[in-house]
Amino acid sequence: MLGNLDLSLIWAAIIAFGVIMYVLMDGFDLGVGLLFPFAPDEEARDVMMNSVAPIWDGNETWLVLGGAGLIGAFPLVYTILLPALYLGVFLMLAGLIFRGIAFEFRFKARSAKKWWNIAFAGGSAVATFAQGAVVGAYIQGFETQDRVYTGGAFDWLTPFSVLTGLGMLAGFALLGATWVAMKTEGYIQRWARGLVVKLLLAVLAVFVVVSLWTPFINASVRERWFDHLEIIWLLPALALGCAALIGWGVKRERDILPFLATMGLFIFTYLGLLVSRWPYVVPPDYTLWDAASAPESQLFLLVGVLFVIPIVLGYTAWSYWVFRGKVRLGEGYH
């Protein structure tokens, strides 16, 4: 019976789920870091950081789970993407590390606080840009021969990937702003709400340019969208619907709706990206079946992962429940 199960498809679903969980969840706490330098005052920064402090490292566990799943289930993705994105990966890790220790030490610092502010905002910006550039590099595809990356050190850094990097900065900042607007009140909430529309316009601008640009970069993506699969046009339509909801929600001063709609915007854009490249996981040459590890290895790992994912989901849901509601000045983490 197991022989009929396509383990590679199951694994593709698990990893795709892990990636979007990571993007949505680490997205808003990276976004909070991006907005840090523009916050009205130091107290607002305290509140903003308090709003994500209890959950951010749980959010990043999804990145590690995704990475570990990749080397276990689709090693070819791991061994081509990491060499191809070598310097970008370093920047992302350096950014995440600085951000991580800033979380730990800023709360305990007094005169050194401004340095940890810089580490937090700078680390968030570098990590976000690197992640956005990875998306751009992924759409472009990778130069390979005999299952080995053969391109140069800066192939990933092109005008297109810079654009997607900037788009990611705007997108995560939008997630961060809607999060802050949901979790705070008073002048901090008003400030965050004021940012939402501007950031949304920036995101939409990048969204439009990337959508128009992509078909020219890549013939297979163009065929996918302009061939006969009309149903997939639902995805960008739903994404734009979410954008409209964000604008409407902010205007009506809704607390939760803009944040949820921003998540929707990310989810539908992400699905659109998956559809563009399916079933290639290392575009343009290798499909998910080419990239898979041996079935016995995929099965060996699947047992443990299926056991742990529900626990991680439960733990995540529980910690969000515990830390629900508004964050106020001078309470919480110190």
């Binding site: 090693p75 791991y78 061994t79």
Partner: peptide, 21 residues
Amino acid sequence: FGTNWSNFSQATSNFIGPMLS
């Protein structure tokens, strides 16, 4: 393992991958 030792990771992925995961 991927950035600097990709040939190693690729050749041994069926064992190393699940172990590290």
